[in-house]
Simulated scan of single mutants.
Amino acid sequence: MPINIRKWDAAEHLESGEDVAAYLDAALEDGDPRLVAAAIGDIARAKGMSQLARDTGLSRESLYRALSAEGNPEFGTVLKVLHALGLKLEARPTELPERQCA
C-alpha cells in the first residue's frame, strides 16, 4: 500500500497570534537572518500573501523572494511586513546589567 507523504508546512500550523509570536521568537533566538526571513515568510503565507501584498504595497513575487530562506529583505521591508501582519519587534535584555543606575 503506498504511503502519502506531504512536506511539512509551518504555515498550516500558525493559527493563533500566540502561535505566530512563539514561532517568530524561536527564529529570532536562533539568530540566523535567513531563518528569520523564512519564518516571516511562513507567517505571511499563513495570513495570506495576496492580502499582505495589498497591505504593504509590495508585489507578491517580491514578497515571496524576500521572505524565503534564500532571501535577503531590506530592514524597511521587514518592518513594513511585520506591521501589516500585526506584529512588532520588541527589544529585551539578554542578561541583567551588572551596574546599578544611580
Rank of each mutant, 00 (worst) to 15 (best):
P2D: 10
L35T: 10
L67T: 02
G86H: 10
E90W: 01
N4M: 12
A39N: 01
S50D: 13
A37F: 02
R92P: 02
K88N: 08
K7Y: 09
A37Y: 04
D55W: 04
L82M: 15
S16M: 03
G41L: 01
R45A: 11
T77V: 14
L67H: 06
G17A: 14
A66R: 05
G48R: 05
L35P: 00
R60L: 06
E61H: 07
E29A: 15
R65Y: 08
L52T: 06
R65K: 13
L89M: 14
Q100N: 11
E29I: 02
L35C: 01
R92S: 15
A84W: 05
A44K: 03
D42F: 06
T77S: 14
A69T: 02
E98M: 12
Q100K: 14
D30G: 14
R54A: 15
A46P: 09
A10N: 11
G31Y: 04
G86Y: 12
G41A: 05
S59D: 07
A66Y: 05
G17R: 15
P2Y: 10
G76A: 12
L63Q: 10
L85V: 03
D30Y: 07
G17I: 10
Y64L: 06
A26D: 12
L87E: 12
R99Y: 10
A91E: 04
R60Q: 15
D19F: 10
V36W: 03
A22V: 05
K47G: 11
T94E: 11
D25K: 13
L35S: 04
L35F: 00
A11W: 09
S59P: 04
Y23Q: 07
P33D: 05
E90Q: 14
A27R: 04
A91Y: 08
I40Q: 01
E74H: 13
L52W: 03
P73L: 08
E90V: 13
R65L: 06
E70W: 01
G71I: 02
S62Y: 10
T94K: 13
E70I: 00
I5W: 08
R99T: 12
A10T: 04
Y23R: 05
T56Q: 09
A26R: 11
V78E: 03
E95S: 14
L14P: 12
Y64I: 04
V78S: 09
A53E: 11
A69Y: 08
P97S: 09
S50N: 12
A21C: 07
M49K: 09
V81Y: 07
M1R: 14
Q100Y: 10
E61S: 13
G17T: 11
Y23C: 02
A37R: 02
R34V: 00
A21G: 01
A21W: 00
G31V: 09
H83I: 00
E70Y: 03
E70K: 14
P73Y: 06
R92A: 15
K7F: 10
V36H: 02
R65E: 10
D25S: 13
P33S: 10
R99E: 13
A66Q: 14
Q51W: 02
R60T: 14
E98N: 12
L89S: 04
K7S: 13
A38G: 01
A37H: 01
R54E: 15
Y64V: 04
G71C: 01
Y23E: 00
I40C: 00
